[in-house]
Design a protein around this nucleic acid. Structure first.
Lengths: 344, 344
DNA sequence: CTGTTAGCGCATTCAT
DNA sequence: ATGAATGCGCTAACAG
């Protein structure tokens, strides 16, 4: 034997089966135009040798790579983990592998990751952009010339389709609900005001407050537990302490809950709490936390589905032009009423 | 222009820079043996054309694919998500992409995933086997002839190195701790007894009970909240109800907590609770849940590090033989005492 | 320092 | 129904 360490090639199969390489190629691609006899024989050799087509060679021949890239801030974050799981399922259904890269919301890393994916000639990319306004990114993506779908966060002026939750409306509804409880001083708590989702939610909060003639009360300085605790303590110490807190994201909600629990401030009697984004134990905590719930799996799934749709037309000789009903799909969020907001 | 849609090739760069392909190749591979003048010129053209080497062609030439595969039961599971994040970081540090596939603990899917990864000529694989005893899997992996590292769960009789938490000892310590509180009837609650980790933990529980001359009390029928509730209610209704519950995994711990909370059984006064595996809000629940904590990120990180070490020697002409200090790395777990076990 | 050339494994004309 | 030959993009001999 020559190279026992490297996988068998199509040519080896052909030789061993005493046929031409073309025939073997036909066999592994559906077995059309091959006589039943040779078909069986070739398949036997394939089985025996444990032959597996070399995808790299296929790519070089101009076929699809059968991989898609997923570019996200973090895998450990449960939101993106769920998106990734959904995307993986769709990729799998389309006979493709999912390549996952993480950016940590760093535009530089993001570019590097995209570059890396392009070198591997990925068929398409699912992206949650670190910066929704970046023209650099938009330009770069345009140059890539492959189907891309943004999710959770859009990419402005890019022509790239996006799948989003309706952050604005979710936050508006949430705030309106708190107002309907009679609270007037509602503190909006969050961090990372550069992120699209957070800005949208903040906008929704402002909208609801304004609609009801209430003065907004915002603190976007929350980065970790410490800063949350500080923000809440400061706020509580004012002459006009908040009657309710609306937290803009998962971790902030938890920090707020922990702080109030530590300060022995009864929820919702002294201060009500409502958070954007649900989390596993929200219903188990006492009181159970009311939240805005987003269709997380849907976001990942739909984004991946759109990507593969675009992939299909991408390969078509003359793309059927107007196959893009919507450039921005906005998924509805749901207000989940538990007890922390004051509901019974 | 010919094909404005396909990425520029090395040859195009060469033509435009008026040099041979070899020179361009040298430039993109470090720029050795190229005069500063031509180097600059070629780099300029590369920049201008936005040239990116085609990894598929490199693979075909016999180079490393610069991808590693991660085969796990689920991405949404926080344990595996953290492992994935750690593995991604190491892959990235080694200039490689991470391909993630999920098995749902289904051996069939697992095989398919591995096959798929092999077609793409992945350099190596990180695997959390669905079945630690599977000879089919072990044989298959041997045939693949690429570096593989198992993590969280080993693969018996496979010669494949593994990175594990010390499940047995963790569970033993945990049980011993409950015993030290004076509890004698300790219910061990769990599910999926086919999984290596769960079996090991169960073994640790038995060991501790036996060491102390106590009769084991086990229910491995927990699959979801309903079954957990049923198991606990039944157990509580006996003549000799348990004084403490030791749960074998995350979700079971939460189900148990919820059930006890719903039944208004005071923890730990009536029944103490201690769970294997920590979770985000364990310290926030009231009472705070005592748990066994495993070094999750370490498991993923070390597994990936070992994989790349093996990758390095794999490419070496004559592998330095004995570069494998341990075939099984067992990481220590930690008992985190909060209040649910009876500690103050 | 630089260019020519020969494959890597496969799908694909184009013959037969 | 089958096969021989060509080329995808790149690296590595091997000249010069």
């Amino acid at each position: 034997m020559q190279k026992p360490s490297s996988p068998p090639t199509l040519a080896e199969v052909a030789r061993k089966a005493r046929v031409g390489t073309t025939t073997v190629s036909r066999v592994i691609n559906g077995g059309e135009r091959v006589s039943p006899r040779t078909l069986k024989r070739v398949q036997a050799v394939i089985e025996q040798l444990g032959y597996m087509p070399n995808q790299a060679a296929r790519i070089l021949k101009g076929e699809r790579a059968k991989t898609i890239g997923l570019v996200i801030p973090s895998i450990a974050d449960s939101f993106f983990a769920s998106c990734a799981e959904a995307a993986q399922a769709i990729a799998r259904a389309n006979d493709s592998l999912l390549m996952v890269t993480v950016t940590g919301n760093d535009p530089h890393m993001e570019l590097e990751n995209l570059n890396h994916l392009m070198r591997h000639r990925t068929d398409g990319i699912l992206l949650s952009p670190a910066n929704s306004q970046s023209d650099t990114l938009a330009d770069f993506l345009r140059r890539m010339n492959i189907p891309i779908v943004a999710f959770d966060r859009p990419l402005s002026n890019s022509g790239i389709p996006s799948v989003l939750a309706d952050n604005f409306n979710g936050a508006r509804i949430a705030t309106a609900h708190l107002i309907s409880h009679g609270y007037r001083r509602i503190l909006c708590l969050g961090g990372e005001p550069t992120l699209y989702t957070l800005r949208e939610r903040l906008r929704g909060y402002h909208q609801a407050m304004q609609e009801n003639g209430l003065a907004p009360l915002v603190d976007m300085s929350v980065k970790d537990y410490k800063s949350a605790e500080y923000a809440i303590e400061s706020s509580l110490a004012t002459a006009q302490p908040p009657e309710a807190i609306f937290t803009l994201k998962n971790s902030t909600t938890i920090y707020a809950f922990e702080t109030l629990q530590k300060l022995k401030v009864p929820i919702p009697r002294s201060v009500a709490l409502l958070g954007y984004d649900d989390f596993e134990l929200a219903a188990t905590l006492r009181p159970a936390i009311s939240v805005i719930q987003q269709p997380i799996e849907d976001i990942g799934r739909i984004a991946a589905e759109i990507l593969f749709e675009n992939l299909a037309v991408h390969g078509t000789p003359k793309s059927p032009a107007a196959r893009r009903p919507q450039d921005e799909i906005r998924l509805e969020t749901k207000l989940v009423l538990r007890h922390s907001c004051g509901c019974r």
